[in-house]
Computed example of a mutant assay.
Amino acid sequence: MPSVSSVPPSAPSSRDRVVAALRTAGCVFAEDEAEMILAAARTPAETAAMVERRVAGLPLELVVGWAEFRGLRISVAPGVFVPRRRTEFLVEQALRQAPGAAVVVDLCCGSGAVGAALAAALGRVELHAADIDPAAVRCARGNVAAVGGQVHQGDLFEALPGTLRGRVGILAANVPYVPSDEIGLLPQEARDHEPLVALDGGTDGLDVLRRVAAEAPHWLAPGGCVLVETSRHQAPMAVETIERYGLTARLAVSQELYAHVVTGVRP
């Protein structure tokens, strides 16, 4: 067997082979993905296995086991919603609205990325996260514990301790908002590898948002805010829904991230 030093200079490097395999599979950012895989893999065999999983269509974040979110490395796992970069805009809006929040709730938390990012930015806060999906709760526990938070399992507000009523400064609810009949139009990575409960928002995509809006005023502190992500065409109805329950609503849009966030503030 030839040693590494005896390999001809023209032989492709491990990185080149990884990039070529990813590019052939249609990965648009093959070079960046190759760097992440090579950094995560501990052995050549592990590199090969990771490349094989990525080529087969597994999302990159699940291949390497983490996703970057507002500068944090958030652990992710199979069957758990992968945090999107556009959701960083929701965090930014929450910090803008309530920079002094002392109690934070991350509802429909998935991996717990939003709660972890808020706690990291705010400093010493009481952080609670909740999700109905056991896989999400298991994943979130590691991410949220790292910033001193707690994770609860259950259906929306039913999961939360009753002692939080009337005390929440930021209620971040990244609810599912894809209309049921549009699930099939999502990218294959989402359709095949993320839980339906984290994607399906009902007939018009707003079923879960309505439930959150109806209960949020009972949990918010005076001046506290609830924030939800929505789509461009759903935004007007989302604003109307938030206002229906006595909150002052505003819509914020990021053209760069193609993100739409509705904030409702308790008077």
Results as ranks from 00 to 15, higher is better:
E189Y: 11
V212K: 03
R191L: 05
P222A: 00
R191V: 09
D131Q: 09
V168D: 11
D207C: 03
L220P: 13
V144L: 00
H193S: 09
C225I: 13
P187C: 11
I170C: 07
C139E: 06
A120C: 01
R210N: 05
T203C: 07
G184P: 00
D192W: 11
I183A: 10
P161S: 15
L185R: 14
V114G: 03
L122A: 10
G149K: 11
C139F: 09
N143H: 11
G201S: 00
A216D: 13
A136S: 14
L220S: 12
G115M: 03
R191I: 07
V147K: 01
V137S: 10
V168A: 06
D204R: 07
R138S: 14
V125N: 04
E229M: 11
P179S: 10
C225F: 09
G115V: 09
V208F: 03
L199I: 12
L206F: 12
A116K: 00
L196R: 15
E182A: 08
V125W: 05
L196P: 02
H218T: 15
Q150A: 15
G112T: 07
G202P: 12
V208N: 06
G154N: 07
P187E: 06
E126L: 09
E229C: 09
A113W: 14
G112F: 14
A113H: 09
G112I: 09
E215G: 08
C108F: 10
G115C: 01
L206N: 14
Q153M: 13
V197Q: 04
E229Y: 13
E215V: 14
G224D: 12
Y177E: 10
D155Y: 00
Q188R: 15
G224E: 06
L186W: 08
Q153R: 13
A146G: 08
V175L: 06
A121S: 14
R191S: 11
V197E: 06
L186C: 07
V147H: 06
V228Y: 07
V114F: 03
